[in-house]
Structure formats: structure tokens, C-alpha cells
Amino acid sequence: MNAQMLSLNQLKQIALHREAFIYYIFFFVLFFFAIVLHDTAFLTFSNFMNIVKQTAPLTIMAVGLTFALAVGHIDLSIGSVVALSALVGALLLQHTGIPLAVLGALLVGVTVGLINGLLIERLQVSSLLITLGTMGIITGIARQLTNLESVPIINQDFTFLFGSGKVLGMPILLLWTLVIGGCAYIILKKLAAGRHLLAVGGNPVAARAMGIKVTRIRLYALIASSTAAALAGLLYAGRLHGARYTLGEADLLTVIAAVAIGGTSLFGGRACIVGAILGTWLMGIINNGLILSGFSTNEQMIARGVILVIAVAIGVKEIRNG
């Protein structure tokens, strides 16, 4: 009897858990479109692969941002890092091979994260302001770097590796999503590093008192965030066979919304990688579903907002009733 009560209680706990929220929303929206678009190709394997491929860079950005949010920082510079890393990668590919180009592009991410982190810690200013500033600087550099020119990529190995490739019938972009998502999941759930990350976000004073190097952990989290954005830049470049200063520009808000809807706290201490990935896929599904439903652009915008609000409302209700 007692044991039963407990398991019931536990079930309730799971249902009430903030992380469960995204599942309700995700499946609600999926169900909704599956019904509305039953006579189109919405519910086909290739359509879902499309969505996964389209959202791959966003997913990687979302996973990275989850790290920054876990320690209680926001990183607004990720969109601009996408552009700069893609441009740097594409430019390097004109002179060297893939390894150096990739290294150079990722180094953009590491450097930006390091600068963000050091500025935040040294100046003791909110990450919102610092990364807003670096976002402007990086956007400017990206625009300046090629004088607004787009840089084509003709290296087919590169476009295979970061864009159109398939491994064992699986799109390589899905593979990237799963590998990066899997690593992030393990770090946050299974490794001491993730524990410390969340501790710093949950209660920095306590974390410091327990001997955790709070400053260093925050720095690592910001580096993870912008390095993931740099990788997203490479994925864009691979997908588009070239880089352009506008890449990633429009992604920041989508990524923040996806991560938040996925159950990660915007104020630190709670992070959910699976939620972040489902969150970006959700955005992709809504986008895809609305295009397939034949709405005009303006109608799509309105419908996107309405669906998000309804989905969130239903998710909240389900959880309350849980």
C-alpha cells in the first residue's frame, strides 16, 4: 500500500516536472498538424528528415545556449558567431584543407566565448549587456571581413561533412545533432562537470562555498555556448555551399524560445538538453506545417504565434492537472 502510494507520488512528480512540458507541447503540435495536413506529405519520413536537416544549426546553437543558461548567463552573441565562424571557415577553405578551416572556425567560437566570459567576470556586468555588445562587434567584423561579400565553398568533402552527406542512410546533419546533443546530455546528466555547472547556476554562493571554481565554470559555459554556435556556422556553410554575413542573424530569438520552451530556466540552475532539441524541432515543425498548409507569409506569422500560445497554454494545463 505504502509502496503504491509512493510510486503514484513519483509518477505525479514526473508529470509535474517542468521538463515534461515540452513533451506535451511537442506531441500536441505534431498531432495537430498530422490531422490538419493528413492529405499532404507532412507525415512522411522524408519530410521529418527535412525538418531535422533545416533545424540542425539551430539545434546545435540551442544545445550550446543551454550551457550558458545553466550557469545563469544569457549569450546573445551566438547569432553573430554563426556568421563569423562560417565566413572564417569558408575563407580558410580557399587556402587550406578542412582540418585547419574547421579549427579556425571553431577557434572563433572559443575566442568569443573567452572574451565574453572574461569581460563579464572582470567587469561584473550582466551577460545580457556584455554579449549584446560583443554581438554588435562580431556582426561588424563579419560584415567587414568580406565587405558583405558571400564566400562560396566548392570543397565537396566539406559540404558532405557539414551539409549534404549521409552516413548509413542517415543525413549527416541528424548525426551532428545526435552526437552533439548526446555529448551535452552526458555532460549535464552524468558528469561532475555538469553537476558543477548547474550548481553554479542554482546557487553561486553555495557553489563557491563548496569550493567550486565558479568563475572558471562560467567561463567554460560561455565558451561552450559560442563554440557550439561556431559549429552551427559550419553546418550552415556546409548546407548552403557558402557563407554570408547574414547567417544566424534571425536565429537568436528562435533559439532562446526553443530552449525556454524545452524546460531550461532562463535564470540558471535548470537545464534540459532533450527539451532544447525538441524545442527547436518544434519550431521547425510549426514552420514546415504552416508552409505545407498553403498560408500566405503574413498568415503564417499569425498562425505561428497562435499555435505557440495555444501549445504553451495546453502544456501548462496538462501539467497543472498532472
Binding site: 553537476r195 542554482g202 546557487n203 553555495a206 557553489a207 563548496m210 567550486i212
Partner: peptide, 29 residues
């Protein structure tokens, strides 16, 4: 800590979102 001195702080230095085990072993996992 290395010298063998442990402090129980007034605010207890706990992470509210962590469970008991996670807090007990914070930074000494």
C-alpha cells in the same frame, strides 16, 4: 577543508534544485 575544518553556513550552502545526494556530494562527487 584540507586542514579538516568544515563550515555549516547560515544559508547552508545548498543548491535548491539539487536533491539530497547531489548536495551531500557537491564538488566531492
Amino acid at each position: 577543508r584540507a586542514a579538516g575544518i568544515e563550515t555549516v553556513f547560515q544559508d547552508l550552502a545548498m543548491i535548491p534544485e539539487f536533491n539530497i545526494v547531489q548536495n551531500l556530494f557537491l564538488n566531492r562527487e
